[in-house]
Amino acid sequence: MDQIKISAIMTVKNGSRYLESSLSSVFSQTYPPQEVVVVNDGSDDDTWEVLKKLRRTAPIPVQLVNTQGIGRSRALNLAVSHARHRWLANIDADDKWLPEKLEQQAVAASLFPDAELVVTATQIVYGEGEGELDAKGAFSVTPMGRDRFYVHNPINHSSVLFTRRFLDQVGGYDEALVRQVDIDLWIRALRKGYIFYRVDMPLTIKRLHDGQSYEVGNRLGYTFNSFKISLKKLWQLKAPFYYFPIPFVRFVYNNIPRSIRHRLLR
């Protein structure tokens, strides 16, 4: 495990609200990364000032890169190009890691020498942290092939730990895409025969809140794009025909207002 050196990467645009919470969870890892690379992609709020403040007190080196609205995929590829280590761990600016997240992934990577991508299970919280739980249970790892992706995308982008070699072989993030760039990456990896390894404890926290582009932007456009990607995924992964109605059902559900969806999940 001592040979696993990690660069944490993040891209952010107008994300100051949860930025300190997110980066603090990186700094407090029991197996900390060797560095953090943050690309601030054209924020017009106080994100840049918050980042500089956090860098001054960070316990590990933090590289800050300032760009002017180059887009999510290009910003991710730029963060990767600035990272110095073999293993890369992405975290979105409004998500969090539990303290043992990277340590458990490093153990999993050591146990499976062929592993190029290790993820964790995810728990969902709302707003300031409603619903957050401590991860408990025995350590276990589940290999995931293409059949695990037929119904939904089982990987939270903030949970991934992958090698630079993996990213190079699948071609990096597609800079022609503006949304859901991670799903496109997983599809290309699966078609090349990659197996993903999941640490089964929910060590990554995905935060849902009203400030997300999904909630405040063009919901119909976003969900329709998701619908198209889901159909493309099923086609390219050669899923059985009976999985194809699922994207239609999900499209309808995702256009229900968030307040109602929240109650339905209770």
Results as ranks from 00 to 15, higher is better:
2 D>G: 02
4 I>N: 04
10 M>T: 09
12 V>P: 07
13 K>E: 06
15 G>F: 06
19 L>W: 07
27 F>R: 01
28 S>C: 11
33 P>N: 03
35 E>Q: 04
40 N>Y: 05
45 D>L: 00
47 T>D: 02
48 W>L: 10
53 K>Y: 03
56 R>I: 10
56 R>D: 13
63 Q>T: 15
67 T>K: 13
79 A>W: 02
86 R>M: 02
93 A>E: 10
94 D>W: 13
101 K>Q: 14
102 L>F: 01
114 D>R: 01
116 E>S: 04
117 L>Q: 03
126 Y>H: 08
133 L>P: 01
133 L>Q: 15
133 L>S: 13
141 V>P: 08
148 R>Q: 13
149 F>N: 09
149 F>K: 12
156 N>G: 14
159 S>H: 01
164 R>Q: 05
164 R>H: 07
167 L>A: 02
173 Y>V: 01
174 D>K: 11
175 E>G: 08
182 D>N: 11
187 I>W: 05
188 R>K: 13
193 G>P: 05
197 Y>N: 10
202 P>C: 08
203 L>K: 08
204 T>N: 08
206 K>S: 13
212 Q>T: 03
220 L>N: 02
222 Y>R: 01
222 Y>V: 11
227 F>T: 00
230 S>G: 13
234 L>Y: 11
238 K>N: 14
239 A>Q: 12
243 Y>I: 07
249 V>P: 05
253 Y>P: 00
255 N>G: 04
257 P>V: 10
258 R>P: 01
258 R>L: 14
258 R>Y: 15
265 L>I: 03
